[in-house]
């Protein structure tokens, strides 16, 4: 029995205004997998992600984390198992200092004293943000906020890490740093992102959502080689697979080509 498995069966979500955000979505993500859920704007990525730790309930269908079916009674356990990092760190950081913010989850789990101190320090050290512990979150840069937001989740020792657009709004250096950090994690990881180069580097498996339905589910490199599929889902190949436009132009204009 493993808590690291995420399974969705015939998931459907209809918002109160009648918008069908996801329909008949099924997948199974196993222990240690790193999976990207990609798609155009409005494809249903964030809605799907919010089902994974019970922020939203499905209109029909099921979510299972390990052997546990997501219901109101299993919610506390599932929220401890599935750590969710939100797209905007400002939504996630609400306490007066970084330390208190990272301590919020462990305190709710009943930790106190030296255990709490140890857990917070470990999480902050892991994301390289130990020096920020006494700072107020609103004084941090975008990259620092993202790191601290990840630490707030790591401090709860989740088995599964779910991240909504982890690299959005980061400068190239912070993005590289964050990707290196995520590569180190041995958790089951689920990302949504428009940063397809990050997906190529971090995820062995990719699920494409289009109009709330799964259009493809398979190895990332195979999916990114399928131009027709990408075009149909309003996506483009990662830049690293597109070739350099300047070099290509050079080659084309060289005599003999």
């Amino acid at each position: 029995m493993s808590h690291h498995i995420v399974e969705a069966r015939n998931l459907q979500h209809i918002y109160p205004d009648g918008t069908i955000a996801i329909k008949d979505v099924s997948f199974r993500i196993t222990h240690g997998e790193s999976v990207a859920i990609i798609g155009a704007n409005g494809a249903g990525k964030s809605t799907l992600l919010q089902h994974l730790n019970g922020c939203l309930y499905p209109t029909s269908g099921q979510i299972r984390i390990g052997d546990t079916l997501l219901t109101k009674s299993t919610l506390p356990d599932i929220r401890r198992t599935v750590g969710m990092v939100f797209q905007y760190p400002d939504d996630q950081l609400f306490m007066p200092t970084v330390f208190e913010d990272v301590a919020f989850g462990p305190l709710n789990q009943g930790l106190s004293g030296s255990d709490l101190e140890e857990r917070v320090t470990e999480a902050l050290t892991r994301v390289g943000a130990e020096h920020l512990r006494i700072k107020p979150p609103y004084h941090l840069s975008g990259g620092e906020k993202k790191r601290v937001a990840i630490a707030t989740v790591l401090a709860m020792s989740p088995d599964i890490l779910v991240m909504d657009e982890p690299t959005s709004g980061l400068d190239p250096f912070s993005r590289r740093q964050l990707m290196a950090l995520l590569l180190e994690f041995k958790h089951t990881k689920i990302f949504t992102s428009h940063d397809l180069d990050m997906v190529l580097d971090l995820c062995q498996r990719t699920i494409i959502l289009h109009n709330g339905m799964i259009m493809a589910d398979g190895p990332t490199d195979e999916i990114f080689k399928n131009d027709t599929l990408l075009a149909a889902c309003r996506l483009e190949k990662p830049l690293s697979m597109q070739g350099c436009p300047l070099c290509s132009a050079d080659c084309a204009t060289k005599p003999g080509n």
Partner: peptide, 24 residues
């Protein structure tokens, strides 16, 4: 909406309406 998102983030980190402070 923002308050709702923050509340969701609190729930996601185990908030059940009980207060916990780090200083014992």
């Amino acid at each position: 909406l923002q308050a709702d998102r923050i509340h969701t983030a609190m729930l996601a980190r185990g908030f059940t309406g009980r207060f916990h402070v780090s200083r014992q």
